[in-house]
Design a protein around this nucleic acid. Structure first.
Length: 669
DNA sequence: TTAGGGTTAG
């Protein structure tokens, strides 16, 4: 057999090294044809560096050498280098052919290199002699990854030849971009064209989370013989987790004989998404212990983001340690997850320290740090960080503006926020989105300029949506503007009749206005629509263990000791001047009942438990899933003074740091 | 030429 045909078949490293040695011994190491085959074989074994060395030593590279080198990089997920090498080709005026183009398009899609992708598309149109199903499918896939579904569809519609891969590209494109209906329509159209779909089609359809498709997908999976395919199973798990059916996902997980990293990581997300931190931790320990799974950057990010959501600082520090141990400290994604974890655990010193130690910082890292300062009410430091970011040469993006505006809003820096908004839109030519407008409405509304906020929503070039009206309604509630509040609430309910939050806000507002009939009516419509209010939960981590408290939860394992402690606590803070704010109880009941409800708020249970179980003088950290109520806010200030403790409470919006009778939010929230 | 898990802002 010739050297060439041997090389084509080799897919193992050892025989490949032997064959390579023979090529060298036979004095053939300058033969382009053989070198190309060698490069291909090395890349297929995952040894891109070898392939790179051979490529650099070929004296007269041809187009095939370049294409094989690019394809090796792509096969090994080295997309950034694909773009670099392709650019080099362009500089050297080497003209790519159809195969080269079909090779690089997916890399451009994954990298989000829109301009580069479009210019290659133009080049291909100019020199095209007819259709090419590989290039066209690559284009459909690339534009789908860019989120440009119109262009993707246009390319797809103009294809003269389509295979199952082309159909999969357009179906997954629609599915990944949130167009479930269109994905389904294309699937039906594909079937009418005589194609039944394969495992890729099934994966895209599974991720649609449309359970009505169940039987159809199931039969497709069975027919294609992939019923037990681990990929199909993990896709199903993901779908269940997105739909909040964690136990169903876990059932599938248990049935997988060889569980890989993706399956393990998915369950981490599932447990933490369902609010079960204890189970998340148990799962993680199992994953690290008995199954000895090596962590990668995605699994690290998943755990870090869990610690961040639950405010689990001790566990978070442990994860930080694992980041260093596994060598991911220079990864940008992991970096922003670490910064976010520290920021969400109210430890800005650690967040800033990690940020400072990063070799390279991208826009997400900066944004994370800015919003971290924002959440804790350190608005000036957020603005300062924003200015440093600009002078360091990193361009702000849409999220930067959201982070800065939020920070200004939390700190009451109205003029500064408005100035930055003005500058970003006029000088940086950033087109404001609904989110930006929602931030500005929030900024104006909180400071009492409700009319300015309202007229902005009428002036802007976009149709106001849920976000804008929610911000307005919150402002109406804070500043007791019941008339406008009523008008806005009606709009919110019309826009989304299934959101319990709007009914609650409306009911609370009527209650504040003393209009108990309307308040009751709003709660009745909540019930008649079968909607449930999210229960208020406060949680805290003590010695790495998470404790969760729900309002009036008398069956809590620590209830009796908490109740006794709480009685003493109330007496002590009352002696210091605390008066229960019964207005915070938006129910039409007697003052005695109101006080009883107030004293059993989840925050107060958590505070009592925290004071009992932690060392005197140490910081008590609590995370609440909803906004902290007025009375708990007042009580926390007294507790911080009377017990000489720092209380850090994170609510749905921001942090409140109570120290010596004062809150860091300066009662601005 | 198509594939499952991931970071910021509300």
């Amino acid at each position: 057999m010739s050297h060439a045909s041997i090389l084509q078949k080799i897919r193992d490293i050892r025989p490949l090294h032997q064959a390579h040695a023979r090529v060298i011994v036979s004095n053939l190491s300058e033969n382009v044809f053989l070198c190309n085959r060698l490069m291909n074989a090395y890349a297929s074994c995952g040894l891109v560096s070898k392939s790179q060395i051979i490529f650099s030593q070929i004296p007269s590279k041809n187009l095939v050498s370049w294409t094989i080198f690019l394809s090796g990089l792509k096969k090994n997920d080295r997309f950034f280098e694909v773009a670099e090498v392709f650019n080099e080709m362009m500089v050297l005026k080497i003209r790519p052919n159809d195969i080269t183009i079909a090779t690089v398009l997916p890399a451009f899609g994954k990298l989000g290199r829109v301009l580069l992708g479009k210019s290659v598309h133009c080049y291909w149109i100019k020199r095209n002699f007819g259709g090419n199903v590989f290039v066209e499918t690559g284009l459909v896939d690339m534009y789908s990854k860019f989120g440009c579904m119109r262009i993707a569809r246009n390319v797809f519609d103009n294809m003269t030849v389509r295979n199952v891969v082309s159909w999969n590209a357009i179906i997954s494109g629609y599915s990944n971009n949130g167009y479930g209906g269109e994905a389904l329509q294309m699937f039906r159209w594909m079937k009418r064209n005589g194609l039944s779909g394969d495992i890729f089609t099934a994966m895209s359809l599974i991720s649609l989370e449309d359970f009505r498709l169940g039987i159809e997908i199931h039969s497709l999976v069975v027919r294609s013989g992939y019923e037990n395919d681990p990929l199909i199973r993990t896709a199903l798990m993901g779908s269940y987790i997105n739909g909040n059916f964690v136990d169903d996902a876990y059932r599938i997980f248990k049935g997988i004989t060889k569980k890989d990293l993706v399956a393990w990581t998915l369950m981490l997300k599932g447990f933490s998404k369902s609010g079960n931190w204890r189970r998340t931790l148990e799962h993680f320990k199992k994953m690290m212990g008995e199954d000895k799974i090596a962590l990668d950057y995605v699994s690290l990010i998943t755990m870090l983001s869990g610690c961040s959501c639950f405010g689990a600082l001790e566990q978070g520090r442990g994860m930080h340690g694992l980041v260093l141990k596994t060598g991911f400290q220079d990864d940008l994604f992991v970096g922003s997850a670490v910064i976010d974890m520290y920021a969400n655990c109210a430890s800005m010193i650690d967040a800033k320290k990690y940020f400072g130690g990063m070799v390279e910082k991208d826009v997400v890292c900066w944004n994370t740090l800015i919003s971290g300062y924002g959440m804790i009410g350190r608005g000036n430091e957020a603005i300062d960080t924003f200015l440093k970011m600009k002078s360091s040469g990193v361009s702000p993006d849409e999220s930067t503006l959201v982070s800065v505006l939020c920070a200004c809003s939390h700190a009451g820096l109205v003029e500064q926020g408005l100035r930055i908004f003005d500058q970003m839109t006029k000088v940086w030519h950033l087109i404001p989105s609904l989110k930006h407008y929602a931030c500005v409405v929030d900024l104006l509304g909180r400071s009492g300029r409700i009319n300015d906020a309202y007229s902005l929503t009428k002036r802007m070039h976009l149709q106001p949506g849920l976000e804008i009206y929610s911000s307005l309604l919150t402002a109406c509630k804070i500043h007791r503007n019941f008339e406008l509040g009523d008008e806005i609430s009606q709009k919110l309910v019309e826009l989304n009749p299934n959101d319990a939050g709007h009914y609650i806000l409306l009911s609370n507002m009527y209650a504040l206005a003393g209009n108990w009939d309307c308040a009751r009516m709003s709660r009745v419509s909540l019930k008649s629509n079968n909607l449930k209010k999210n229960p208020g939960l406060s949680s805290m981590e003590i010695n790495g263990e998470m404790f969760t408290f729900m309002a009036s939860q008398i069956d809590h394992p620590h209830y009796l000791e908490i109740r006794d402690f709480l009685q003493g606590l109330i007496l002590k803070i009352k002696a210091a001047g605390y008066e229960p704010d019964t207005n915070s109880v938006l129910l039409d009941v007697s003052d005695d009942v109101k006080r009883d409800i107030l004293f059993h708020h989840s925050e107060k249970l958590a505070i009592a438990f925290g004071l009992m179980k932690t060392k005197p003088g140490s910081v008590v950290r609590i995370t609440k899933n909803l906004r902290i109520c007025d009375d708990c806010h007042i009580a926390s200030k007294f507790v911080s003074k009377v017990y000489a403790r720092v209380l850090i409470i994170k609510d749905a919006n921001r942090f409140h740091v109570f120290r010596d009778g004062i809150c860091s939010c300066r009662d601005w929230w």
